Simulated assay, not measured.
Amino acid sequence: MVGIDISGRHEEEGEYLMVAAAIHAMVGTTRLHSVEGMGFAISHDEPTLSATTEIVADAVCDLPDPSAKPIVAERGEFYEEPVWMVEQYLEPDFKYVESIAERETVQAAHHAAYAARKLLL
């Protein structure tokens, strides 16, 4: 599974700096067992649906195994758009968080994206 998160979707001093993190993880039903790889991408674009899906796709492509599936995110990451709309950008193996393990993987991606963004500022 790949958990994703984007940090920095707000404008600061007239600019945007979005950092996406993709975490490829091995999970059980209730927890994250191991992290197999991390991918990152940055963007200075305004955070539209198109821009956020593009940066996520770039972060997933940066993984050692970019074919890992499914891609999982919190609903707010893509402005609560329906799954079928997000799948148009990220291929058919996308879904919103449903299990504890998926939530933990997305949380790991959140920490990675936030830390990477802080390093870039």
Results as ranks from 00 to 15, higher is better:
R9W: 00
E13G: 06
E15C: 08
Y16K: 05
M18G: 10
A21M: 08
H24F: 07
H24K: 10
M26H: 13
V27T: 15
V27E: 05
T29K: 10
R31S: 14
R31L: 12
H33C: 10
S34C: 11
S34H: 13
V35N: 01
E36Q: 14
M38Y: 05
G39C: 12
A41I: 13
A41R: 06
I42E: 11
I42A: 11
S43H: 01
S43P: 08
S43E: 02
E46T: 12
T48L: 05
L49E: 04
S50H: 02
A51R: 02
T53C: 12
T53M: 04
E54G: 09
E54C: 03
E54L: 10
I55E: 08
I55W: 03
V56D: 08
A59Q: 00
A59F: 02
A59W: 03
V60W: 01
C61P: 00
P64R: 12
D65S: 13
D65H: 09
P66E: 09
P66F: 11
S67V: 10
S67E: 13
A68D: 05
K69F: 07
P70E: 07
I71D: 03
V72H: 04
V72E: 03
E74M: 04
R75Q: 09
E77H: 03
E81M: 11
E81H: 05
E81Y: 02
P82H: 05
P82G: 02
M85D: 11
Q88H: 10
Q88D: 15
Y89Q: 07
Y89N: 04
L90E: 07
E91P: 00
P92T: 13
